[in-house]
Simulated scan of single mutants.
Amino acid sequence: MDELIQSPVSLIHVGAAIVALATGTFVIMKPKGTARHQQVGYVYVVSMMVVLTTAFGIYRLFGRFGIVHWGAVFSWLALIGGIGTVWLRAHLRNWLLWHYLGMSLSVMGLYTTFVVEATYRLFPARFFWWTTLGTSLVSFAVGSLLIYNYSSLSRQPAEAADRGWPVMD
C-alpha cells in the first residue's frame, strides 16, 4: 500500500477511484433513466472528475507526462461526451446514444485502468508494456460484453432502433 499511496494527491485519487468503481458498476447493472440512476450517475461523474484531475498530479511511473496521462485526457473526453449530451439533450437528436457511448467508454477506461494498475506490479519491469497492453485488451473485451449485456441494446432491439441506437442481433 505504501507504493500505491505516495502523497495526498494519490490518496485522493485512489479514494475517488474506489467510489467511481462502485458507482459506475451500480449504474451499469441497474435500470436506466430512473431517479436513482441519475443520482448515482452524478456521483460517478464527480468522482471521475476527481480521479482524472488528480491523475495529472501523479508522475511516479515515468517521472513525466506519460501514457497514463494520455489515458486521462481521453477519459475526460469520454466523460464530457457522456454527461454533456445529457445537458444538451434538447438540442441533440441522438443524445441517448451519445450519452451511452461516452459513459460506457468512461467506465470501460476506469475498469481497464483498475486491472492494469492491479496487475502490472506483479511482473518485472521489462514486461510492463506486455502486461499493460494484454490486460487492457482483455479488460476492454470483458467490459464491452458486460456493458452490452446490461444495456437496452441487447434486451429491446426494437426500442433501441426507435431511439436511433445501433442494434446488434
Rank of each mutant, 00 (worst) to 15 (best):
M1V: 12
D2E: 15
E3L: 14
L4I: 13
L4W: 14
Q6W: 12
P8G: 10
S10G: 07
L11E: 09
L11W: 12
H13Q: 06
V14Y: 09
V14K: 05
G15Y: 02
A17R: 01
A20Y: 04
A20R: 01
L21C: 10
G24D: 00
V27F: 03
I28Q: 01
I28A: 04
M29I: 10
K32F: 04
G33C: 10
Q38T: 14
Q38F: 14
Q38S: 14
V45Q: 03
V51Q: 03
T53N: 04
T54F: 07
R60S: 15
R60Y: 15
F62C: 06
F65K: 06
G66C: 09
G66Q: 10
I67M: 14
V68P: 00
V68Q: 13
W70V: 15
F74R: 03
S75Y: 02
S75M: 05
W76M: 03
W76V: 00
G84F: 01
G84P: 01
T85I: 05
W87D: 04
L92K: 04
W95Q: 07
W98E: 04
H99M: 07
H99Y: 07
L101K: 08
M103H: 02
M103S: 04
S104W: 00
M108A: 11
M108F: 06
M108E: 03
L110E: 01
L110T: 09
L110W: 01
T112Y: 01
T112C: 07
F114I: 05
F114M: 08
V115G: 00
V116Q: 08
A118T: 09
T119M: 06
Y120V: 12
R121L: 11
F123R: 04
F123E: 03
T132N: 08
L133H: 11
L137N: 07
F140D: 01
A141F: 13
L146G: 06
I147L: 11
I147R: 00
S151K: 09
S151T: 08
S152G: 13
L153D: 03
L153P: 00
Q156M: 11
P157A: 06
A158E: 15
A160Y: 05
R163L: 15
G164Y: 04
W165C: 09
